[in-house]
Design a protein around this nucleic acid. Structure first.
Lengths: 147, 147
DNA sequence: TTATTACCGGATGATTTTGTCCGGTATCTG
DNA sequence: CAGATACCGGACAAAATCATCCGGTAATAA
C-alpha cells in the first residue's frame, strides 16, 4: 500500500503527536524508533522530509527533538504526510499504470477503482495526526507489535 | 497500488483474453508487449508466472503463443492474477506495516482501512479477465496510451 | 566559553524490483 | 526428418528502495 518509508513516517508522526499532546514534550530520534519499531537512521531521513514539508517541528541541541505544535496537531492530515513521502501516485495514479487514464481514455478498471480511490482519499483527508495520536493515547490503537 | 509486474500482467492477460474471445487465436509475446505497452522480456517473465499458476495457457512452436481457454475466460478473476504476481500483501497486509495488526491489537488506521480493503477485494473478486476483455473489445477500455 | 546533546546532510552499501540476454526445448511446417 | 518458430529458464545488469555511517552544525547547560 504505502512504502516502508511512508509507514515509518506515519507511525513516527503519530507517536510524536501523542507525546506532544500528552505533555508538550519533545521526543528524540532514538525514542521514536524504539517506540515505533523502525530503523533509527532511516527514520531520521523520513522525519527530515516531514520537517522540510512543515508537518513536523524539530529542535536541535540538548532537550531537543521532534514535536508537533498545537496547530500541527490540529491541522496536519494523514494525506499530507503520505503526499510528502510517497507523492501522489497511490492517490491519483491509474491502477494499471497508464500515464493518461481518464474518462476520455479509461483503463478497463477505471470506473471500478474510482470509488475505492475516493474512499482512500477521504480517509486520508479527514484524519489528522492529532486525532490518531489520541486514539493511541487511549489504548485504542498501537504503533508496534507487543509480543 | 500494484507492482509494475502486476500492472503488466493484468494488461497482458486482458489483451490475451480479448484476442482469445474474439477469434480463439493465440497471440505472441511480441504482439502482447506492443499492444500493452510493456517491456517484452519482462512481460515474458510475468506471463510465465501466470502460466504456472494455471491462469493463462501457452503453446510452444510455430503458430504458438498465449491464449485463454473458454473456461479461463469465464472463471479467472483479477484477484487470482494479482495474488499470483504480487501475493496477498496489498489485499490483507496492515496499512502501517504492522505484522500483527488485528482487532486484538489494531493500528490506529485499522478500522478506517477495513472498508477500503473490503471494497478492493470485492472488485478484484467479482471481475473476470473475460469480462474486462469484453470491455476492451467494445472500445470501453484501453490497455495502453494512444497519442 | 566550553562541552555535550541531538538533529542535519551527504556518502555509501544492501536488498528488492525492474529489465535484458541468450541458450534450451517443445512444436509445427514442409 | 530438417528447419524454423516461439515459449522456457537461468544468468546477468540497471534502477529504485531500504538502510547505515559519520562528520557538521545548532542549541542548550554548566
Amino acid at each position: 500500500m504505502f512504502s516502508k518509508a511512508c509507514e515509518y513516517g506515519i507511525r513516527a508522526a503519530i507517536y510524536i503527536g501523542q507525546q506532544s499532546a500528552d505533555s508538550g514534550r519533545r521526543v528524540g530520534l532514538r525514542d521514536i524508533a524504539t517506540e515505533v519499531g523502525s530503523p533509527e537512521a532511516f527514520t531520521a531521513k523520513v522525519l527530515q522530509q516531514l520537517v522540510r514539508a512543515g508537518l513536523v517541528t524539530s529542535v536541535k541541541g540538548p532537550t531537543g527533538g521532534f514535536t508537533l505544535t498545537p496547530e500541527q496537531l490540529r491541522t496536519v492530515t494523514l494525506r499530507q504526510v503520505v503526499l510528502a513521502i510517497d507523492g501522489g501516485q497511490m492517490l491519483q495514479g491509474c491502477a494499471l499504470g497508464l500515464t493518461q487514464c481518464s474518462a476520455k481514455q479509461p483503463c478497463p478498471l477505471h470506473y471500478q477503482f474510482l470509488p475505492i480511490r475516493d474512499q482512500l482519499n477521504e480517509v486520508l483527508r479527514t484524519h489528522t495526526i492529532g486525532e490518531l495520536a489520541g486514539k493511541v493515547h487511549d489504548g485504542l490503537g498501537f504503533l508496534r507489535q507487543f509480543s
